[in-house]
């Protein structure tokens, strides 16, 4: 799938022919997609379509059964410092003994290395990030005392503190209140204005055209990818969400049985 408006220079991520399997069961099949630079990109698809896995494949968090990923023309090792990640909120223990400010400061660890301690400029960056998401008054709060929306903002602030060029966000809008949703959208637009690329797994199909420029429609295979106006069509949605339990599941079963 080649974007019409994205030449090689305008590409943030090139996912080439990627297959990922967990316990021999494929979750992503031959996915080929170009993510254009400086855009807000939604990844949509039904449960189990491999949306999170696509993000993790780009980040190198899961082994690729085949294919390769290029980020701004580099391999993963060369592009590490350009990446920011917002995992699913449910993936961590929010009773952990740290404050909101501590979590945001983790966004600076990547440039610090294993031993070096965060300095004043790191603390300043963390503070700026907390301010941007409207959480500065909650900086000293232990994270379990924050609401779901506030926790999501803290995660977003941590990503801001990373000061990356490409952000991969796993369901940043899941379970947040309306004011947080608006705050996140504002931050995403600010990021786009600063030339950053954001790829976000998104569940609310209604808001895709409002919040995002591009969309990647996924159901284990790539269904469609491109500008929202071109590919976010009823036909593609049906292809993505409709025939979920038919061909691919059967094929996956066959592969598992044969292996």
């Amino acid at each position: 799938m080649i974007e019409g408006d994205a030449g090689k220079d305008g590409v943030a991520v090139e996912v080439h022919d990627v297959t990922v399997a967990y316990h021999r069961r494929p979750v992503l099949w031959d996915v080929d997609v170009l993510i254009p630079r400086g855009r807000l990109v939604a990844v949509v698809g039904p449960n189990g379509a491999g949306k999170s896995t696509l993000l993790k494949a780009i980040l190198g968090l899961v082994p690729l059964a085949s294919g390769r990923v290029e980020i701004f023309g580099h391999n993963l090792r060369g592009a590490r410092g350009l990446l920011g990640y917002v995992p699913q909120r449910e993936s961590v223990d929010w009773d952990f003994p740290v404050s909101a400010a501590d979590v945001v400061l983790m966004g600076r660890y990547g440039r610090l290395g294993w031993i070096r301690r965060p300095g004043p400029e790191d603390r300043a960056a963390a503070e700026t990030a907390l301010r941007k998401v409207g959480m500065i008054e909650f900086a000293r709060r232990q994270i379990s005392q924050l609401s779901g929306g506030q926790q999501q903002r803290v995660f977003l602030a941590r990503a801001l503190a990373q000061d990356a060029a490409l952000y991969l966000m796993d369901e940043p809008f899941a379970g947040v209140d309306a004011s947080t949703e608006r705050a996140i959208v504002d931050v995403l637009r600010e990021m786009r204005a600063a030339g950053k690329t954001v790829v976000a797994v998104h569940h609310d199909l209604q808001t895709v055209p409002e919040y995002f420029d591009h969309v990647v429609m996924l159901n284990m295979r790539l269904v469609a990818a491109g500008p929202v106006a071109d590919v976010f069509t009823r036909e593609n949605l049906l292809k993505t969400y409709g025939g979920r339990l038919t061909m691919l599941e059967a094929a996956a079963e066959a592969v598992r049985a044969g292996a």
Partner: peptide, 22 residues
């Protein structure tokens, strides 16, 4: 003591730790 920060991040959010190349 030297590794406390890294251990803390590992315990809190292993995927993020891996995403920054740890």
């Amino acid at each position: 003591y030297l590794l406390a920060r890294e251990f803390g991040l590992l315990c809190f959010d292993r995927a993020f730790s891996a995403s920054i190349g740890r």
